[in-house]
Amino acid sequence: MCNHKPPCPAATAPDHDAAATVSSHPEQGWSRLCNGILRFEDGGELLPGGKIIGPFSRGLVNAA
């Protein structure tokens, strides 16, 4: 459970990325957020229930 004031957003909340980082392992490419989400350096996430949110692309522009 989150002890922050105000509490961190739940893993299912739209703003779940705003949760505090409680464990960071940049040498392995991941961090654990207070709400139980594992966030990977490529932008992908693993939610506590096992749902996977794929990585996102930054800075890509449609050249059409």
Rank of each mutant, 00 (worst) to 15 (best):
T12D: 11
A13M: 05
A13D: 14
A13Q: 07
A13H: 07
A13E: 09
P14I: 05
P14K: 07
P14H: 06
P14T: 05
P14D: 05
D15A: 10
D15H: 03
D15Y: 00
D15S: 08
D15M: 06
H16L: 10
H16I: 01
H16W: 07
D17W: 12
D17N: 09
A18P: 06
A19S: 07
T21M: 09
T21L: 12
T21Q: 04
T21Y: 03
V22S: 04
V22Q: 07
V22G: 03
S23G: 11
S23W: 06
S23P: 01
S24A: 15
S24V: 06
S24C: 09
H25I: 07
H25T: 13
H25A: 13
H25S: 11
P26W: 05
P26S: 14
P26E: 10
P26I: 13
P26G: 10
E27L: 11
E27F: 05
E27A: 15
E27P: 07
Q28K: 15
Q28I: 03
Q28L: 15
G29E: 06
G29V: 07
G29F: 15
W30S: 07
W30C: 01
S31A: 11
S31Q: 14
S31P: 00
R32L: 12
L33Q: 11
L33C: 07
L33Y: 00
L33A: 05
L33S: 00
C34M: 04
C34A: 03
C34H: 04
N35F: 01
N35P: 08
G36I: 05
G36H: 03
I37H: 00
L38I: 04
L38D: 00
L38N: 01
L38Y: 11
F40Q: 02
F40A: 00
F40Y: 14
F40G: 01
F40R: 05
E41K: 14
E41Y: 11
E41M: 10
E41F: 14
D42N: 13
D42P: 00
D42M: 01
G43L: 08
G44Q: 06
G44D: 03
E45A: 02
E45L: 02
E45M: 09
L47D: 00
L47T: 01
L47P: 02
L47W: 13
L47G: 03
P48N: 07
G49E: 12
G50V: 05
K51P: 00
K51T: 09
K51E: 08
I52L: 10
I52C: 03
I52V: 11
I52Y: 14
I52H: 12
I52K: 15
I53G: 04
I53L: 10
I53E: 04
I53H: 07
I53F: 02
G54I: 01
G54R: 12
G54H: 09
G54S: 06
G54E: 10
P55K: 12
P55Y: 06
P55D: 08
S57T: 12
S57L: 11
S57V: 13
R58T: 10
R58K: 13
L60I: 10
L60P: 05
L60H: 14
L60S: 14
L60T: 08
L60V: 09
V61P: 07
V61C: 12
V61R: 12
N62R: 12
N62I: 01
N62L: 08
N62T: 12
A63C: 09
A63N: 13
